[in-house]
Computed example of a mutant assay.
Amino acid sequence: MFQYLPPLNEHNLPYPDTIHPIVIHFVLAMIFFAFFCDIVGYFTKNTRLYEVSWWNLAFATVSIFIAIIFGQIEAGLAEPYQAAADTLNLHTLLGWSLAGILAGVTGWRYVIRLREKEQLPTAYMVVSVLTLLIVCIQTYLGTALVWIYGLHSIPVVDAIREGGL
């Protein structure tokens, strides 16, 4: 069965480069932009921005699951060494949690949208800020996996293959 799979390249991937960071950056942009639209709409009472926010959240919720799928594949192929394993495990756990939280926030936002509220509830805005805080922590962990631990970078992949890590 394994002979039908493509060989792994110098990044230890079956495709040219990591896909997870590409997809997740779209998710991050949509989450931050949705929050920005909610804040501006909240203070300016411009309800059209709430519609923009809703659609950004809806697409971000779908896209985060795509990002997680590629993240799981790439994490499995990374062969993390001991120093990176705890950060990778926390990043994975927080990623799945964030997907659930984002789905819940999006569902809540959908109910608010159906009720055609002129103003977003303060509780929703507080939860949005907490969600953004989790997004920032998750972004830091993902950045550390690449820039501190070097997962899927050629020197680290070479060192793992040679038994150096």
Rank of each mutant, 00 (worst) to 15 (best):
M1S: 01
M1L: 03
F2L: 01
F2S: 01
Y4H: 00
P6V: 00
P6Y: 00
P6T: 00
P16K: 06
D17R: 07
D17Q: 11
T18K: 06
I19P: 05
H20T: 03
I22L: 10
H25N: 12
F26R: 00
V27W: 07
V27S: 10
L28M: 13
A29N: 03
A29P: 04
M30R: 03
M30Y: 07
V40H: 14
G41L: 12
Y42R: 09
F43Y: 11
F43I: 08
N46Y: 11
R48C: 08
L49C: 05
L49Q: 12
E51A: 15
V52A: 14
S53E: 12
A58L: 15
A58Y: 09
A58I: 04
A60H: 05
A60W: 04
T61S: 13
V62L: 13
V62G: 04
S63A: 15
S63F: 15
I64M: 13
F65I: 10
F65D: 09
F65A: 06
I69D: 09
G71E: 06
G71I: 11
E74L: 02
E74P: 10
A75W: 09
L77A: 00
A78T: 04
P80L: 10
Q82R: 12
A84T: 09
D86H: 05
T87W: 10
N89S: 14
H91T: 03
T92E: 08
L93W: 08
L93T: 14
L93Q: 11
G95T: 05
A99S: 09
A99Q: 02
G100F: 12
A103P: 06
A103K: 02
V105R: 06
T106Y: 09
G107T: 10
W108I: 04
W108E: 04
R109F: 13
Y110Q: 08
I112T: 10
R113M: 07
R115D: 07
R115T: 05
R115F: 08
E116S: 13
Q119K: 13
L120P: 04
Y124T: 03
Y124P: 00
Y124S: 11
M125R: 09
M125I: 10
V127Q: 08
V127D: 06
S128W: 05
V129W: 09
V129E: 06
L130E: 00
C136Y: 06
C136A: 14
I137V: 14
Q138A: 10
Q138G: 04
Q138T: 12
L141T: 10
L141C: 05
T143I: 05
T143M: 13
W147F: 12
I148G: 03
Y149I: 05
G150I: 03
L151E: 09
L151G: 10
H152S: 15
H152E: 08
V157H: 10
D158K: 14
A159L: 13
A159H: 03
A159K: 15
A159I: 08
A159E: 06
I160P: 01
E162K: 14
E162T: 05
G163Y: 09
